[in-house]
Design a protein around this nucleic acid. Structure first.
Lengths: 258, 258
DNA sequence: CGGGAGGTTGACCACCATCAACTGCTGTGG
DNA sequence: CCACAGCAGTTGATGGTGGTCAACCTCCCG
């Protein structure tokens, strides 16, 4: 109960978890009324979760699936020498465990980065849904393929780009996907990430992330006080970041020049 | 016609492309006779391909699907400053374009790394197959999820590990997956990669890959003359590489200690 | 014989990691 | 109310890993 914000932007006036999911799936495959009804009748069980709650742990077997209703989450893996690599972020409306739905064991961790809420669903229910609603099944499969495309871009990001570009690119993806959820405009962004988490996502150190953020600010890509970012020039930021949103496959704002 | 080896190990005594595919899918989901029949009757059209043949180009729409019958292929992306990142390798038997099957445009390139042969199949045929054979659909979806798991491990590899470990890890994955295809033992390996390609896969430079290979040889992880590698101590190589094959989800040799 | 691709080695240097000190903020308990 | 701890962020000094540039080698193939 503690640690979750139920104040002025309480959950009652936000879209429900099923609405978020429907919105997202409809972007991928147009659903019919029967599909939407089937989704609305799924027996989700809501859980209010605190920051750092581990939702799935590497090596365990996964028997239920996890829809992010509020807040932000990340998937990460560890190297043997103890370094953590964040491999994906999740936004409200993301069905986070499609990646594990057909695999016997989790190969990475899933952790809340902020407080929030998740909606659990037994995997058996998800499989029944997929069997009875082919369009939903296709939307789920497409979503998993978009995830994979994002992974490929991350490999490129950490493998080929220098530190400044990497940080900028990560920010661009976060902003683009965040806007797609429809909660906020692009220009203003409350980034729910510590600099250490940005470091773990980009393969850098927190110290160097800090320096890159300062340089990006000095170059006029954005301004920020704390984690409140203001994107003054989206075109400039995209250019610095080498950000081409085609890899998001239409699940985020596709075009938007200077 | 030129550039393909039809000599002593010609294609006639190798498993056919459908046999390779069946073998692979059966590892993921046990198929029934009707499933196998349906796959055998797919109208594949074989093409002999030379080295460096581009099978799919980024930004194009994909209308057919590509089964690797012989040789090796790689997927790669380019950053704006012209650096190439290889994001995946493919072995004979891999249905290489599941990743693009539901997405409107290719987000990366697919290129042959050796000469070989591919079997093309219209995507419409693949979709019909998936609709009529749920077990095959599940196997295909699972294969795509295993691919995604491999992408995640690559993010970890380039994001967290030092150069020596990275190169060793890439070799381990290649060896493990190659043995799973069943063509060769682990101990001997003809690596179909230039050092420049290893560099593009690990986010290093060819010069530094060369140095790392020399160090790994000096440490006794393997010996090699040219691209002929002999793995003297698989346990030692795994240890140096921080290689834990769980992320391959059983599509390669799972256990094998020192 | 010549050309080109891939591989090998050395010299040098830059980017980023590491270590350390210090700040500001927030929550907690005296 | 202040004291204090703890976390996130900030900045500087220093060093190492890996990039860059260049030369040269071998092998293969025309």
């Amino acid at each position: 109960m503690t640690g979750i914000d139920n104040g002025s932007d309480g959950m009652s006036d936000l879209p429900s978890h099923t609405d978020l999911l429907l919105r997202k799936l409809n972007l991928l495959v147009p659903l019919q009324a029967s599909d939407e009804d089937a989704i609305r009748q799924l027996p989700f069980s809501i859980e209010i979760v605190r920051q750092n709650r581990m939702l799935v742990r590497e090596g365990t077997t996964v028997s239920r699936c996890c829809l992010l209703a509020k807040g932000y989450a990340a998937r990460h893996k560890m190297s043997r020498q103890g370094k953590r690599q964040i491999v994906a972020f999740h936004m409200p409306g993301d069905l986070m465990d499609i990646q594990h739905s057909l695999l016997p064991r989790a190969d990475h961790n899933l952790e809340m980065m902020t407080s929030g809420a998740v909606a659990w669903l037994p995997l058996s229910e998800l499989k029944n849904l997929a069997l009875s609603c082919p369009r939903v099944a296709q939307a789920l499969a497409t979503d998993a393929l978009v995830d994979a495309s994002i992974f490929r871009e991350w490999v490129l990001n950490v493998g080929c780009r220098d530190a400044k570009t990497r940080v900028a690119h990560m920010l661009c993806e976060f902003i683009a996907r965040r806007e797609a959820v429809g909660v906020s405009p692009v220009e203003k962004l409350e980034l729910p990430l510590t600099q250490e988490q940005i470091a773990d996502a980009t393969g850098l150190t927190p110290v160097h992330v800090n320096r890159m953020l300062r340089i990006l600010t000095e170059e006029g890509a954005f301004t920020h006080v704390g984690r409140e970012f203001t994107i003054s020039d989206w075109g400039k930021l995209k250019l610095i970041a080498d950000f081409e949103p085609a890899y998001l496959h239409g699940t985020a704002l596709e075009q938007r020049s200077s």
